[in-house]
């Protein structure tokens, strides 16, 4: 699976959890899920579960803790699926 494809799917997963949709404009690998998209920690748990379902992977607590940016999520998925 290509990085761009994973990135697109991650953005789709994030979309319903982002309170201000305009925050998704210009989203990049460096975008902070918590700070820039203002996703709270409860929603971050939901996002991890959605990623597990969408990509058929299991995300460990340690790996989930490392997900700060969109790029972190994409890297985690690519690494886990490799």
């Amino acid at each position: 699976m290509e990085q761009n494809e994973v990135m697109g799917k991650v953005v789709d997963i994030l979309r319903p959890f982002v309170k201000n949709p305009s925050a998704l404009t210009g989203i990049s690998m460096d975008t902070s899920i918590l700070k820039d998209l203002k996703v709270n920690s409860a929603r971050l748990v939901d996002i991890v579960l959605e990623i597990e379902d969408a990509f058929g992977i299991a995300v460990t607590d340690e790996a989930a803790d490392q997900v700060k940016t969109v790029g972190d999520a994409v890297s985690l998925i690519l690494k886990t699926k490799a």
Partner: peptide, 22 residues
């Protein structure tokens, strides 16, 4: 703090995987 009237968490307690993650 948690706002219990947030619609996003209305049914979360029924979702086993969320409860198991937390």
């Amino acid at each position: 703090v948690v706002d219990l009237e947030d619609p996003a968490i209305a049914q979360t307690h029924l979702r086993e995987r969320f409860v198991a993650r937390v």
